[in-house]
Design a protein around this nucleic acid. Sequence first.
DNA 1: TGTGATATGTGGGGATGCTATACATCGGGA
DNA 2: TCCCGATGTATAGCATCCCCACATATCACA
Lengths: 110, 110
Amino acid sequence: MIDRELKKGTTPLLILALLEQEARHGYELSKLIEVRSRGVLSVHAASLYPLLYRMEKQRWIRGRWVEKAGQRRRRYYQLTSAGAEVLAAQRNSWTEFVGAISRVAGVEYA
Amino acid sequence: MIDRELKKGTTPLLILALLEQEARHGYELSKLIEVRSRGVLSVHAASLYPLLYRMEKQRWIRGRWVEKAGQRRRRYYQLTSAGAEVLAAQRNSWTEFVGAISRVAGVEYA
DNA sequence: TGTGATATGTGGGGATGCTATACATCGGGA
DNA sequence: TCCCGATGTATAGCATCCCCACATATCACA
């Protein structure tokens, strides 16, 4: 796993991006991040759920409980229009940030 | 400026990379980071100096005081061989990390 | 019955960066 | 002459975020 410090601040971007296509619940988000990053990234439950509350409080996402018989209830989150704007801004920030690190530290990307 | 949370954990990489070529002092490092990142990144003094102590304690860098008449004394840091290994590892980590974010969040690099 | 996967939730601690403040020297402009 | 900005290092205290450990709850399978 990557140095935990590196991940700080990037998780909201990942979550917003994953909610861009469709609504998903917390556990699903954590699994998707692990699978799509090929195990490089992982978001612990104890980081994820509090983060989802913060993001909901900021109105970037909106959650609703979905109950199915014989299943633990799930909370599905969907991206709001404000969240979509934040996502676009964060993608830009991230690209700019990566470029800056590259210029200073001389890192190449394949 | 970039979201402060994003920067967490990347500053050691920047410092190690800047010391790869020659020994530099703290203030010079902070200026170089600002200039080479074209203002995207900046390391505040209150973050930089404690970080330099930590890195020296870990033997990634070695500092020595240089006094010049009529000038504030400066502490020059040079990369150790252990530091060079850490630098290589951190460059790899960073590249891997950026690739992972890209796969999950669908970010493109120019 | 018990173990693992699914699914959400919380308290407390650790690591890092920032604000604010301080000390210290030098050169330039009012 | 005096103030201010740039240079240069240093520290106390705060805010923030992530993680470990633990807790709760349902279902499939052995």
